[in-house]
């Protein structure tokens, strides 16, 4: 395993850290002995064969499933404390917008709920309207989700995730259901958003080129039980633009990951 990811680098602040974490569903071990440190502001992509626990890993970090053993911390807090402080946000494969709310009202949802649980809902620097502008949807504030395309809906979901200015953005195959052209365009846009906001991103994907194009590091998981196979550092400079996809370096990373994936 590539040591650079698990070793704490000098002066690198940690956004999320997992130590010997495992997840069990009854007798089934979904994740086993995961130890990772994710540096603040980093962009990680997660790859692996189906059933390797990629989604489970995001759900572990986001306090949706508890660890059976080990520990998970976000910015030095427990996952529950981080959830209550809105330190992280989640983007699902399906946009999960509320169909009766306009795009703007959907982005505002996180600001409206949670007070009853004693949360002091943090307001980001950007208003919901500015966030829709950031994802390229200005002028569509009043549109209902069914009036928007799949790519637009997913961009609304991203704007909603950013509304409390999270330090950590968890994305579970957010572009998996979109056509390839839309996906490529949203990849570029996501890199812009990452640069603008400086948030840490954990991004699960099925697509090797997407993992290479977006990530600074690719976390390769293996299945049955889900464990870390390898962390691959992607040494391609940002800003990354479309022509990068045709360079030999890009393709050699893709080839290396494909071979790794076949070993899993």
């Amino acid at each position: 395993m590539d040591g650079s990811a698990t070793k704490k680098l000098e002066g690198r602040s940690i956004a999320a850290s997992l130590s010997h974490a495992s997840v069990k569903f009854g007798n089934f071990t979904a994740l086993e002995d995961i130890s990772l440190d994710i540096g603040a502001g980093e962009f990680w992509t997660i790859l692996g064969p189906s059933g390797c626990g990629k989604s489970t890993m995001l759900r572990l970090v986001s306090d949706l499933v508890p660890p059976a053993t080990g520990k998970v911390e976000i910015l030095g807090k427990t996952t529950e404390a981080a959830r209550l402080a809105r330190e992280f946000a989640f983007v699902f494969q399906d946009a999960t917008l509320l169909p009766w709310r306009s795009a703007l009202k959907n982005v505002e949802l996180p600001l409206e709920v949670g007070r009853k649980r004693g949360i002091d809902v943090p307001r980001g620097d950007r208003t919901p309207k500015e966030l829709l502008e950031l994802v390229g949807l200005s002028g569509r504030e009043d549109a209902l989700p069914h009036e928007l395309s799949g790519g637009m809906r997913q961009r609304v979901a991203i704007a909603r995730a950013l509304v409390c200015q999270p330090k950590l953005l968890l994305m579970d195959e957010p572009f998996g259901a979109l056509d390839e052209m839309t996906r490529d365009r949203l990849n570029l846009q996501l890199l812009d958003i990452w640069k603008e906001t400086g948030t840490t991103i954990l991004f699960v994907t099925h697509s090797i080129p997407e993992a290479v194009f977006l990530g600074q590091r690719v976390l390769m998981l293996q299945a049955l039980p889900g464990r870390v196979k390898e962390v691959v550092n992607i040494g391609l400079a940002y800003p990354r633009e479309t022509p990068l996809r045709e360079t030999p370096e890009f393709n050699s990373y893709c080839g290396r990951l494909r071979r790794l994936l076949e070993e899993c």
Binding site: R59, S62, D63, L64, R83, L84, R86, F88, A89, F90, F92, Q93, D94, T96, L98, L109, P110, E112, V113, G114, K116, R117, I119
Partner: peptide
């Protein structure tokens, strides 16, 4: 959808918020 309920949980929505909203 289960994902919408997960979203509600991540937002720490209360039972009554899940019901009304």
């Amino acid at each position: 959808s289960p994902q919408t309920l997960e979203l509600a949980r991540i937002l720490s929505a209360s039972k009554s918020e899940v019901f009304w909203k």
